[in-house]
Design a protein around this nucleic acid. Structure first.
Lengths: 160, 160
DNA sequence: ACTGAAACCGAATCCGT
DNA sequence: ACGGATTCGGTTTCAGT
């Protein structure tokens, strides 16, 4: 991917509602050129989607936890992701290397809601669980493109 | 928070670039009313920001890992988040309950980049690290508002 | 692949309820 | 707090280089 595409992606990663007009100014291209590039980034899947990032505390889901899952029967067919996807409290699901097979991130309203959620997880997935409660989140959702966008792919235009 | 605000937040969580016109149709209000509500959700911090979600694989950061951090000196002042925030490869940082003090999520280009990153983390933070490599991500960034938005807060308007 | 212009549509504001 | 109208600016498309 080119440097200019990386910069466009970086801007949108940090400000998902940035207008094409602003974007054009920031990267030094015409509006229609940026438009073209953004559509291409979307089509290629570099930009997967756009999202409003919501504060869990303010929507009645103040408790975040990471839950590590270990299959009870190691020989069981691995369709856990499908089963887990049906549970809405699970925000993300990662298959991982190590003693445990999956790490999922969940958000719930209360400790008792967490307890009920863990029961549901064990019910749909035949796993044992290990839960790590999040106390606070100093930061999250940081755009990872700053470094990528900063790297000089082609030389920047020389000012005269 | 009201039900209608929850629905607005849910729509924007799933489609961060949704227009006010679309939003108005979806929640059954006028454009100016939703506009007002969205601005209020932003001001109150319910909507923290908007972001384009980027595919790490496509920007040269195919390796994701969770790193658990344990302070070497348990009595040391806890300014780890500040130190960690300077490292761009760290996407999120959570303080957690348990044997370890923090769980961070990182994205890097390669195993050797991960090795270098871990060295940097230990350098800035005086911690021991335990790393869990992500093999695949069945899903992530799921909007957690579906359940919240579905719950009937006030009764819906009665059609005549 | 980028520019510039044209046509269209959405955003933002104001006023009235 | 909502709706409707207005104005302004952004989006989208097209033709040209």
């Amino acid at each position: 991917m080119e440097e200019i595409d990386a910069r466009i992606a970086a801007v949108l990663a940090a400000d998902g509602r940035c207008s094409f007009t602003d974007l054009a100014e920031r990267v030094g291209l015409s509006v229609s050129a940026v438009h073209q590039r953004v559509r291409r980034l979307e089509k290629r899947g570099v930009i997967r989607s756009y999202a409003a990032l919501i504060d869990g505390d303010q929507i009645g889901l103040p408790l975040t936890a990471f839950v590590s899952l270990t299959p009870i029967d190691p020989a069981a067919p691995d369709d856990y992701p499908l089963a887990l996807a049906t549970i809405e409290e699970i925000e993300s699901c990662h298959s991982v290397a190590g003693v445990e097979s999956y790490i999922i991130k969940v958000r719930v309203a209360s400790p008792s809601a967490l307890e009920a959620l863990l029961a549901r997880i064990r019910a749909v997935a035949a796993v044992s669980t290990r839960t790590t409660v999040v106390l606070s989140t100093p930061f999250e959702h940081r755009p990872l493109l700053a470094a990528v966008a900063a790297q000089p792919g082609t030389a920047p235009p020389v000012p005269d």
